[in-house]
Nucleic acid binder design. Sequence first.
DNA 1: GCCAACGTTGGC
DNA 2: GCCAACGTTGGC
Length: 136
Amino acid sequence: MPQYWLMKSEPDEYGWDDLVAEGEGVWDGVKNAQASNNMKAMKKGDQVFFYHSRQGLEVVGIMEVSEEHSPDVTTDPERWVVVKVKPVRKLDKPVSLKAMKQNPKLEDLAIIKQSRLSVAPVTESQWEEILAMAAE
DNA sequence: GCCAACGTTGGC
DNA sequence: GCCAACGTTGGC
């Protein structure tokens, strides 16, 4: 059974459309111990929400881990890791941070409790709730 | 090993 | 653009 995650990126740096254009993206530049540990826990096939931070502030699509973690060669060796991801599908309707904050079922969502965490786990029930919100 | 200073992230 | 939150650094 796949695990669920959420990863953030600023759309003017690397947005959903960039990932779709590439077909497969290397998720690099994560320099935070907690986020890095989450990436190390990702398995191929895990499902990941793509969230636009700074601009947009909404979950825009779903991607899938296509390659498990490997060292980020752009930083000190071994210190940080990258994963590879592929786009799965765009959400019918983006789910905004505001809407998620207003949903009591999502009050424990990691990115609401700790806004600066850029790679966070999502529980199955949270995942399904966000999908339901995207389908409305 | 503590903690003040500093840098970065991200919501507003 | 601002600034709160939080992580990291470095002097002691």
